[in-house]
């Protein structure tokens, strides 16, 4: 019966991001959500547990406000959570996040067979935490799986690369990152959400874990996209559509 760990992140829902005058980003009306990719990771872990038994524990790093995300993640069928929380844990560098998660996995989670991560986070989408975590823990890594199964201490995964589908095996424990097409995440029912608050959550503060080291990358700026292509907008009326076609012709991309 496998013990599975899932990593997840509570992220800004980008639908609520607006461009601020001057090219910056307006975060004033943002809402947060469980990163879409992580929903697939959780669903896959819960699917495996439903078939094989075992446990699913979730782990996340974030500011204390991300507690809602822990509840959300638990409502999707995981058994327990580890919440590494500190007001300073915002915009961590992937290497710092990995350092925290690796320490928590080693010292506070217990033996595990499989770690599942989403393919990337919904906000910064660096796609680093999964593969880095495998290295930090010294376990095998399979990224971008579209199908996985466990049998007799072995992970079998189908991964999608450019132009080729690869089926690979790896001895457990291993880490796998999954693509969204691997499953369709559930919509938690009312009872699932109400029960989530009753599941065990281990909250780890900064002091419970060792130092992460400084950031390896420094963010100099985050500005609204679209600097180089100034979009000329057209309406949908006939005259506008004709103007649009003419504009394409003028640019020489339409015969």
């Amino acid at each position: 019966m496998p013990h599975i760990v899932v990593c997840f992140k509570w992220v800004i829902d980008e639908t609520y991001l607006r461009r601020a005058p001057g090219g910056g980003l307006d975060f004033s009306s943002v809402d947060y959500k469980l990163s879409d990719y992580d929903r697939n990771a959780i669903e896959e872990a819960v699917r495996i547990r439903t078939a094989l038994g075992g446990t699913v524990a979730g782990i996340t790093v974030g500011p204390p406000e991300a507690a809602k995300g822990v509840k959300d993640a638990l409502s999707r069928g995981m058994d327990a959570g580890v919440f590494i929380a500190d007001p300073a844990f915002v915009d961590l560098d992937p290497s710092q996040t990995v350092s925290l998660i690796a320490q928590a996995v080693r010292n506070h989670v217990g033996p595990f067979d499989l770690i599942i991560c989403g393919e990337g986070s919904g906000d910064l989408y660096a796609q680093q935490v999964g593969p880095r975590l495998a290295e930090a823990l010294g376990i095998d890594c399979v990224a971008f799986a579209t199908q996985i199964s466990l049998e007799g201490g072995t992970l079998t995964a189908q991964r999608r690369l450019e132009g080729v589908i690869e089926v690979v095996t790896a001895p457990l424990p291993a880490l796998v990152t999954v693509l969204p097409e691997i499953n369709t995440p559930r919509i938690p029912g009312v009872k699932d959400t109400l029960m989530a608050g009753k599941k065990p959550v281990r909250t780890l503060a900064k002091g419970d874990l060792g130092a992460t080291g400084g950031p390896r990358l420094q963010t100099l700026a985050v500005r609204a996209a679209a600097m180089e292509r100034a979009c000329e907008k057209f309406g949908v009326e006939e005259a506008e559509v004709i103007r649009f076609v003419d504009a394409l012709k003028k640019r020489g991309v339409l015969a």
Binding site: K68, K71, S75, I187, P188, G189, T193, L194, A196, G197
Partner: peptide, 16 residues
Amino acid sequence: EEQELIKKNMREFCEK
């Protein structure tokens, strides 16, 4: 938190 999450889940349910 529960009310908010349940409301969001219902929104997702409706969209689907």
